[in-house]
């Protein structure tokens, strides 16, 4: 078989497959984008799942329509509102790579039955790879109303329990991030079972590093929100639209 034939064959072959794939790619791109959007928004709603009707069975469209009702703003590290940036488009993985002072934080306010919950985003490092979570605060901006966590590659059965074990995130409910006098004193993840009546949640046995990662991430990122939370508190009319 001659070289020309080989070349012609490979050219035809590669162009056919490139055409098929390009066509399919552009045809499915909008659906893939919607899928990704729903996936991310569902994760954010996970922090307030106890206050969303039937969270486990929400359809994609329901997720999007609930999210349309949510107030969202992007803020910078000084607590200023950034008008040009849409909060649900902020990618924390990218933000975490920036120097601390330049990071942009998404902030969501979910209102249901006359009560408002403020959802803060966090991202840090577990044992292997990135971990992230969403913490919902009650309207006193002090008590945690709900939390959800996820991870990129923690060990199944150990570190991955931060996502798989409902009770880990459920333990955050009712814990606080500020003392009564307003000092920043966020909830900690204990090594092993938490002592009763302290501001700590149970750690996961066998996954101390992941647990510490969650603790560090929560402490660090909730503090990023402090300037903005102070603004809300000093402004009796909560300045969100």
């Amino acid at each position: 078989m001659s070289t020309t034939k080989v070349i012609i064959f490979s050219l035809i072959m590669t162009s056919i497959s490139a055409f098929i794939l390009a066509g399919l790619f552009y045809a499915t791109a909008p659906m893939a984008k919607k899928g990704e959007e729903v996936f991310n928004k569902r994760a954010i709603l996970g922090a307030v799942k106890n206050y969303v009707d039937d969270y486990e069975n929400l359809t994609d469209d329901q997720v999007l329509s609930i999210f349309d009702e949510i107030d969202q703003i992007a803020i910078d590290m000084k607590g200023n509102t950034l008008k040009d940036i849409q909060a649900d488009k902020v990618d924390l993985a990218q933000e975490r790579k920036k120097p601390e002072a330049d990071r942009i934080l998404p902030f969501f306010k979910y209102t249901t039955g006359g009560k408002s919950y403020y959802i803060l985003s966090t991202r840090g490092k577990g044992l292997w790879d990135d971990i992230w979570g969403y913490i919902a605060l009650e309207s006193d901006l002090r008590t945690i109303a709900g939390a959800s966590f996820d991870h990129k590659g923690e060990t199944p059965g150990l570190g991955a329990e931060i996502k798989d074990n409902e009770s880990f995130s459920a333990n955050f409910i009712g814990k606080t991030i500020y003392d009564l006098d307003g000092t920043y004193n966020p909830v900690m993840v204990a090594k092993g079972p938490a002592k009763p009546n302290t501001n700590t949640v149970d750690g996961i046995s066998g996954a101390t590093i992941t647990g510490d990662g969650v603790g560090d991430m929560v402490v660090k990122w909730l503090e990023y929100y402090e300037p903005y939370l102070d603004k809300i508190k000093s402004d009796s009319k909560i300045g969100m639209k």
């Binding site: 497959s17 794939l21 399919l24 790619f25 499915t28 893939a32 899928g35 990704e36 729903v38």
Partner: peptide, 20 residues
């Protein structure tokens, strides 16, 4: 190339229809 093309088809379809 044949296999890789088909696998990419699977990936694109899955991404569009079942993102999780």
């Amino acid at each position: 190339v044949i296999i890789a093309t088909l696998v990419t088809v699977v990936e694109l379809v899955l991404k569009a229809f079942n993102y999780p």
